[in-house]
Write a protein that binds this DNA or RNA. Structure first.
Lengths: 143, 143
DNA sequence: AGACTTTACGTATTTCGTAAGGATC
DNA sequence: GATCCTTACGAAATACGTAAAGTCT
């Protein structure tokens, strides 16, 4: 059971229609249909009754709708809580005074990609002191 | 954020070691490392401090550990509730007449373990008709 | 016929495992 | 040197989109 599958399921349940749900998910209908089918196989019971005008929840589907909404909401809140707790670490980058803080955006992007969550701060520094006032690194930590 | 990623994260957090966590997940270390990396990128903050003996949770990681355990447990309970609501369904297994209903007990046990609540019924069937008398599927429903 | 979902199939993306690369003790 | 984790890269599995098929009103 996957959160993506649950998002698809909720969309179909709320729209009552595979086509509209697919559009809302920016997805084509066939992949959506397969996802629901796989979810049904995974759970071992059908979730929708396919009716001419679209799809209607089965009793099991009603149960899953409530559970799925709860799970998705909790997942989103968990994200925010973790992000809130993740503040605090800052990497100070010294930039030569003459460069005018024109550090390559590509370099910054690559750095953030390799160190997710890192907060980068720029600090101007004289060319004669590239350390920008930082101390030495000893024993694996900056002091 | 994906439940699979959370499972990987919990394994690493509990083992404190990427290698052991990978073994527990039946996965090689590099894919596990990438999953954690992607999860950190997704959440926007680091979850582990990589130390010589393995990995240690950051404060953000501690928060996520609690959230992830909660989410995974709720997801599992949601599964069972939905399956419970989906009861009333019976899987009929056709067995070749000559086999004397001596279907592998291990196979049945594995089936019931993977699909709790599923009702399995055995039906003897001639080898010439492996469908065991079941009808065709038309229009999305068995008749 | 009209509206809807499902199956078929070729393609693109993602994910995995093995091997090489750094880093720390 | 030993023990970790990470990056690189080729291969397998997965997911997607278009097109054709099937079902029901």
């Amino acid at each position: 059971m996957d959160l993506r599958a649950l998002r698809c399921f909720v969309a179909v349940a709320e729209e009552g229609h595979f086509g509209r749900a697919a559009a809302r998910l920016h997805l084509a209908q066939p992949p959506l249909s397969r996802r629901i089918r796989d979810l049904e196989a995974d759970l071992g019971c059908r979730l929708f009754d396919r009716i001419p005008t679209g799809a209607r929840l089965t009793p099991a589907g009603e149960v899953l709708l409530a559970e799925a909404r709860d799970l998705l909401e909790r997942a989103e809140r968990a994200r925010e809580r973790v992000r809130g707790a993740g503040a605090g670490r800052v990497l100070v980058v010294g930039v030569a005074a003459g460069a005018g803080l024109d550090v390559g955006p590509a370099a910054l992007a690559a750095l953030r990609r390799s160190r997710p969550g890192l907060r980068v701060r720029l600090r101007e520094a004289p060319v004669t002191d590239p350390s920008a006032g930082l101390r030495e690194r000893r024993g694996g930590t900056w002091r």
